[in-house]
Design a protein around this nucleic acid. Structure first.
Lengths: 143, 143
DNA sequence: TTTGACAATATCGCATTACGATATAAACTA
DNA sequence: TAGTTTATATCGTAATGCGATATTGTCAAA
């Protein structure tokens, strides 16, 4: 018989929040293991996906990449450097605005990403219901 | 007019995967910023939540914490060390099995977590629909 | 055309996190 | 008692990302 305290979370809500994090960490752990098994780092994997999966385009500028990965600009530059060293992406200067540089996947980058994305797609299909359930619980008004 | 290639992802699917990661990184970025504003590190925050939100209990052993955070045992030990230093948790030896040590939140830990969890709860309520939509797209059969 | 803004790059040092490898001690169990 | 489990500890290593700061090249507007 708990009092209705609007701002205070109850045990069940803490459990739901924790369960969400647990599911998240399991997914991330899966993802990091998969990336490393594919011979790249987790961040490199996410960068490849951000480029290939950019809405309406298959190439992005460094600024766009930084935003999609929620990184500072110069952190994104460093990440791209490492990707170029690994021949996973290439830099292509823009013609319209010559300050900009487009980042594109190399064929090696595309293959590596395709492999990983297929695995992730399957995994997320499995996890979907679990996450949906957790969101429902979080959103439920009667608690 | 794309051929039905069972194992090959199309652009839309890459975009959905990338959108999911983007949403995830935005949430994580929010969470990390919030934790740091509360004066603790993101990992400390997640540890606090894992303890407080452990199913059916408000204390956990180091092994349990490691599993919930998907960490190696000795990495969890280090994390607990830092939490103890910050007076966010305390170690309480178990009576039943004296090899075990229970980790409990201190009152400071509880307050810090409550503050953060309230914010996260609200944020996740907002993000719920977006994530659900993305999962629906991932699961959609007709692509 | 000059001035100011923007995009990318670069360097430095720093902090955090987590790992593998390895070891020890204490406590439990068969 | 022997073997296993739990927690702790140490060492070196790696990846990531930040702030601060600076430079270069390019664009756009006054």
């Amino acid at each position: 018989m708990e009092m209705a305290r609007p701002d205070k979370l109850n045990k069940a809500q803490y459990e739901t929040l924790a369960a969400f994090r647990y599911a998240l960490r399991k997914f991330i752990h899966f993802s990091e293991t998969a990336a490393q098994a594919a011979g790249i780092t987790p961040q490199q994997h996410q960068a490849l996906l951000a480029i290939r999966g950019f809405p309406g385009r298959d190439q992005v500028t460094v600024s766009e990449l930084a935003e999609r990965l929620q990184l500072r600009h110069h952190s994104a530059v460093g990440l791209v450097d490492r990707l170029v060293t690994e021949k996973l992406v290439s830099r292509v200067p823009s013609n319209e605005d010559r300050r900009q540089v487009f980042i594109q996947l190399t064929s090696r980058g595309r293959k590596t990403l395709e492999n990983l994305s297929t695995m992730h797609h399957k995994q997320l299909k499995q996890l979907g219901p679990e996450f949906s359930l957790l969101f429902e619980r979080l959103t439920s008004v009667d608690e």
